[in-house]
Design a protein around this nucleic acid. Structure first.
Ligand code: ZN
Ligand code: ZN
Ligand code: ZN
Ligand code: ZN
Lengths: 145, 145
DNA sequence: ACAAAAAATGTTACCTCGTAACACTTATGC
DNA sequence: GCATAAGTGTTACGAGGTAACATTTTTTGT
């Protein structure tokens, strides 16, 4: 059983998924990249032979997002599967590194001390942060060689 | 002379601006908020009695961005005037706090130590950061009361 | 001062993204 | 089974963005 299909099983234990919702999550696990809604439609058609209306994709992605199974990258306007579906650790503020060359996304955890320092810095500027989702664009290991 | 018209004069010393380009920068300085391209068109029509084609606005914003006179907020897809037009300090990675309630934007500078720690953290994950433009959404002083 | 060249702006036509409103289909509880 | 809710599809539309080409304005060489 491949890693991502194992993850899929794990997700289904937590949340009841309709076939279409499962397919969309599956697609995101398969690509391991950030995908736009329309890219997902194309992918599901090509690789899974499943048609989705645009409306449905957005509704399904919203649902999966509520369930913390996927995240939306606001900067790129794309979606990724959560990297922590299989582990049961509580999901804090998600933080992402996005490869601007190949779109590969790594969900990371910044050290708490850095997070605190950042929050402090921001408080000094008079702002209060709600959910500090960090999205940083750079180059992944492969693409930076 | 108001603060923002002084800034405008400062900008014109650095870069030669056509009347339209000047007007767009002026509009951004006047609003002090993040504006979408189409919001700028409306604003210039209403307040400055100047018409812009969509195409022109985008070209002008691109130009002003190259000149570091405005920044684009990727998360919100909006534009803001650079907060450092009048001061001659070298422009590093811009970092923004965006009020999700009133759209007010504060351009800040995160302490170097935090920046370095962040970079370090990211390097450990195998990524190399190019220009770490940070965009954080929260509430400004007024809106958090 | 004038024509040629370059830079800036406008027009048209088109594409993608995203959603509202409504219709339809499938699952669920009794 | 039947009523109800949940999920999905259809249509139509508005906003954002751009390519290709036309026009206007500015600059430059003589
Ligand atoms: Zn996650
Ligand atoms: Zn890469
Ligand atoms: Zn700036
Ligand atoms: Zn505010």
């Amino acid at each position: 059983m491949s890693a991502h299909s194992h993850t899929l099983e794990h997700a289904k234990e937590q949340v009841k998924l309709t076939p279409k919702r499962e397919a969309v999550l599956n697609a995101l696990l398969m690509t391991e990249k950030a995908c736009s809604a329309y890219e997902l439609i194309d992918f599901c058609k090509a690789k899974l032979d499943l048609s989705f209306s645009a409306m449905s994709i957005y509704r399904i992605l919203d649902f999966l997002k509520e369930q913390q199974l996927v995240h939306k990258l606001e900067v790129a306007n794309k979606y990724v599967a959560c990297a922590h579906i299989s582990c049961d650790h509580q999901h804090g503020a998600p933080q992402f590194l996005i490869c601007e060359s190949c779109d590969k996304v790594k969900e990371i955890h910044i050290e708490q001390s850095i997070n605190d320092a950042l929050k402090d810095n921001i408080a000094k500027a008079g702002y209060t942060l709600k959910s500090p989702q960090l999205e940083l664009t750079g180059l992944c290991e492969n693409c930076s060689e």
